[in-house]
Computed example of a mutant assay.
Amino acid sequence: MDDAVTVLRRAGAKITVQPASLPVDIATNHHKAFSPLLFGAGDRTGLAPAPSAATLARFVQHPRGDAGPALRGTFQSHFHWLQAHMVRNEIRQ
C-alpha cells in the first residue's frame, strides 16, 4: 500500500492517511448513545401513567433489563439527550 500511496503522491494526488483503528470504541459508545436517543425521541405529552407504571414494574423485576434505559431515556433532560447526540456525531465522524 505504501508503494501505491507514493506513486499517487508523485502523480500529484493529495492523500490523507487514516489511522488503522477508529478513535472511538463503537461497541461501547454506540450503545451509550443509542438508548437515550431511542427512548428520548418520543413525545411526552401523551405519556400515560399505566405504561410508565408497567415499565417501572418491569425494571423492579429485572433491573438489568431494557426497562432501566427506557425509563432513563423517557425522563432524561435535554442536556443528557444532547450529550448522547454528541457521542453519535463523534461515532459518525
Rank of each mutant, 00 (worst) to 15 (best):
2 D>P: 04
4 A>Q: 11
4 A>K: 12
5 V>M: 09
5 V>K: 13
5 V>S: 07
5 V>E: 10
5 V>A: 13
6 T>I: 11
6 T>Y: 08
6 T>Q: 15
7 V>G: 07
8 L>R: 14
10 R>H: 05
11 A>F: 03
11 A>K: 11
13 A>K: 10
13 A>Q: 09
15 I>T: 04
16 T>D: 14
16 T>N: 10
17 V>A: 09
19 P>S: 12
20 A>Q: 11
22 L>D: 06
23 P>K: 02
23 P>M: 03
24 V>E: 02
27 A>D: 14
27 A>N: 08
28 T>F: 00
30 H>S: 09
31 H>Q: 13
31 H>F: 03
32 K>F: 07
33 A>K: 00
34 F>G: 00
36 P>A: 05
36 P>Y: 02
39 F>S: 01
39 F>N: 04
41 A>N: 10
43 D>M: 08
44 R>K: 15
44 R>N: 12
45 T>E: 15
46 G>W: 13
47 L>G: 10
48 A>K: 15
48 A>T: 14
48 A>P: 02
50 A>W: 05
50 A>H: 03
51 P>I: 05
51 P>N: 10
53 A>Q: 15
53 A>V: 06
55 T>N: 06
56 L>K: 09
56 L>H: 05
57 A>Y: 04
57 A>C: 05
57 A>R: 13
57 A>L: 11
58 R>E: 07
58 R>F: 00
59 F>H: 14
60 V>Y: 06
61 Q>N: 09
62 H>S: 09
62 H>W: 03
62 H>D: 15
62 H>Q: 12
63 P>K: 11
63 P>Y: 08
66 D>M: 14
67 A>F: 02
67 A>L: 04
68 G>C: 05
70 A>E: 09
70 A>K: 03
70 A>Q: 13
72 R>M: 09
72 R>T: 12
72 R>D: 05
72 R>F: 03
